[in-house]
């Protein structure tokens, strides 16, 4: 067993003759913030599903939190957190009920639930909103809450699928403060985003094009490598070469 949060070797997902994910290989260190970028249809979602234990790879090898994606999907699910822009919390439950529900799903005891819940609510400054329905909160708050709930069980890795889509620029930055905070506590963060400035906040980023990983390095090195002044230019240079534009 190794100490890497994620290892991937020639990971492939094929639908008939279509390689959604085509022999990708990379490693993510424990506590790293890893940005997973790519145009629509490049294969990000498919790759992420395999890593989260939601679908089997066609071939290749991968471990997440030290567990094999073929044989130990259940263990993987216990050791990761997941949050996406689309699905996060139950709108008709209050803030506290959501915390209790998700904590309960991950097997936290009543005492832990109470402690963690209080801690989380205080940290987000949501004491007044604790008894409000999540549906009535502003989007930015929901997303911050959803992230905090996703890591309430101290997972080794948290997967974030476009967590800041549509959020205002100030809240977006507050959200990244939470991400840094989680990383400092040793949680590995695996994040996808369409905001190129957010790519800069990652320790390392990978850019997927047509099912392959075409670039993988620190943001500074990538800028240098492509002679670009911003991540936007790097992304554009790579994504423009894409042949396919599937879903």
């Amino acid at each position: 067993m190794n100490n890497k949060a994620i290892t991937c070797k020639d990971l492939t997902k094929r639908f008939r003759d279509f390689f959604a994910v085509n022999h990708i290989s990379f490693e993510v260190e424990q506590g790293e913030i890893f940005g997973f970028l790519g145009a629509n249809g490049a294969g990000k979602t498919t790759a992420m599903r395999m890593l989260c234990g939601l679908s089997y790879p066609t071939s290749g090898e991968a471990t997440v939190a030290g567990f094999n994606v073929f044989k130990q999907q259940e263990e993987i699910k216990k050791n990761i957190g997941y949050m996406s822009q689309k699905f996060s919390l139950y709108e008709s439950l209050t803030v506290r009920e959501n915390i209790r529900f998700y904590g309960g799903v991950y097997g936290l005891s009543d005492k832990q639930l109470k402690e963690k819940g209080d801690e989380l609510i205080e940290k987000l400054g949501m004491q007044q909103e604790a008894k409000m329905m999540v549906g009535s909160l502003p989007l930015g708050w929901k997303q911050k809450l959803a992230f905090s709930v996703a890591i309430i069980h101290q997972p080794r890795i948290v997967f974030l699928d476009e967590p800041t889509g549509g959020v205002d620029p100030v809240t977006r930055r507050q959200f990244w403060d939470l991400i840094y905070d989680a990383a400092e506590r040793g949680i590995t963060v695996f994040v996808t985003t369409h905001y190129m400035d957010e790519a800069e906040y990652c320790n390392r980023i990978s850019i997927m094009v047509d099912g392959r990983i075409d670039a993988l390095d620190t943001p500074a090195n990538l800028r240098q490598q492509f002679g670009a002044t911003s991540m936007n230019e790097v992304f554009y240079a790579l994504a423009r070469s894409a042949k396919r534009s599937a879903d």
Partner: peptide
């Protein structure tokens, strides 16, 4: 352009 990648947005 929401949810659309940088190239398609351009």
């Amino acid at each position: 352009t929401t949810g659309v990648d940088a190239v398609s947005r351009q």
